[in-house]
């Protein structure tokens, strides 16, 4: 069974919405999440494939991109007993 992230060709997500002059991050916390993730991977707390897996198994289409990232980071840290 495909995971929820495997959306290629799936109907029902509505139109593609393009935001003009979009900034790289919409809030400071998004930048923090991105940077925190890179730093944790560089330190070997988890690796990039583990992070991808965590995003795929914890994500929700109701959440924003970086909300899903933050949920995955939290899951990985909890599973490793870090937090």
């Amino acid at each position: 069974m495909p995971r929820i992230n495997d959306v290629g060709g799936v109907d029902g997500f509505g139109p593609v919405v393009e935001e003009l002059d979009e900034p790289p991050f919409h809030a400071d916390w998004e930048a923090h999440v991105m940077a925190m993730n890179r730093a944790l991977i560089r330190r070997g707390v988890y690796n990039l494939d583990e992070f991808r897996d965590a995003v795929e198994r914890t994500m929700s289409h109701e959440s924003s991109y970086y909300e899903n990232w933050f949920r995955a980071i939290q899951a990985l840290l909890e599973e490793r007993g870090v937090v």
């Binding site: 060709g9 029902g12 919405v17 289409h61």
Partner: peptide
């Protein structure tokens, strides 16, 4: 390409551009 736009990461684009 720099940071990717939100639409590129959206399920709507990812689902529809292939079909």
């Amino acid at each position: 390409l720099g940071p990717s736009p939100t639409w590129y990461k959206s399920p709507a684009y990812r689902a529809k551009v292939v079909s």
